[in-house]
């Protein structure tokens, strides 16, 4: 009998997709208004809100953290941020 191939959920299924990047999103958290727009639109789930992190619970904190291991540099976050807190900068390679 033929066996069915089974896959298991793994972060980095295609490896560190951050290496695909040509432009890097750089955030200025002092401008961030915690609107969550970049977080919700990121196709790669590479953005975390600082206020969602357990260590920041109860704190009045604004800003995001981008996971450069996996961010592919599409620029949607920079394009959608209503206060222009994210800029795309060319990767130095």
């Amino acid at each position: 009998m033929m066996e069915t191939a089974i896959s298991y959920p793994t972060e980095g299924g295609m490896g560190k997709t951050g290496t695909w990047r040509i432009f890097r999103p750089v955030v200025d958290n002092s401008k961030c208004i915690n609107c969550r727009i970049c977080w919700v639109y990121c196709p790669d789930a590479a953005i975390k809100m600082l206020m969602d992190m357990p260590e920041n619970e109860g704190k009045d904190i604004k800003g995001i953290e981008i996971d450069y291991d996996y961010c592919k540099g599409c620029g949607i976050c920079a394009n959608e941020c209503p206060v222009k807190a994210i800029k795309m900068e060319r990767e130095e390679k």
Binding site: E11, G13, R21, P43, A45, A46, D69
Partner: peptide, 16 residues
């Protein structure tokens, strides 16, 4: 439920 490091092109609408 969509994990980082998937195979979609940058800017893909499917994973959004």
């Amino acid at each position: 439920y969509v994990l980082k490091g998937h195979a979609a092109c940058p800017g893909c609408p499917i994973t959004i």
